[in-house]
């Protein structure tokens, strides 16, 4: 099953760097399709990263985030082999979740 979320989480012992790429149209609701009809807004509203039962990063997004969004951040307190849980929910209520092992 192909997930919409691709994550790379690498630890240097102290700091874990996380990069995530998500497949999502991120439609603004302002663009017309080739038939001249407005494409309704469809975008991720919340993206959450959890590690060891704690939120380590929460993104609230609007329509101005690029299609197939990318985000990068770093956090402390995790070690190699710990599991990172990533989940998003969009304005239509769709969602996806995946986990990644910190390498």
């Amino acid at each position: 099953m192909a997930s919409s979320i691709r994550v790379r989480a690498t630890s240097n012992g102290d700091i874990t760097e996380v990069q995530a790429l998500i497949q999502h149209p991120m439609d603004t609701g302002l663009v017309k399709n080739p038939n001249g009809e407005l494409v309704p807004a469809h975008f991720i509203q919340e993206l959450k990263f959890e590690c060891n039962g704690k939120d380590v990063f929460v993104a609230n997004w609007g329509t101005a985030v690029s299609k197939d969004p990318y985000v990068k951040f770093s956090f402390k307190g995790a070690k190699k082999g710990d599991e990172l849980k990533i989940s998003w929910i969009d304005n239509k209520g769709a969602s996806d979740t995946t986990t990644a092992k910190i390498a």
Binding site: I15, T28, K54, D55, V56, F57, V58, A59, N60, W61, G62, T63, A64, V65, S66, P69, Y70, V71, K72, F73, S74, F75, K76, G77
Partner: peptide, 22 residues
Amino acid sequence: NALAASYKIPDGTIPAVANRLK
């Protein structure tokens, strides 16, 4: 709409973020 993205930085997370905006 001016606001593009807002990130919560909990304790222990480095205050730095990279992303791509329209």
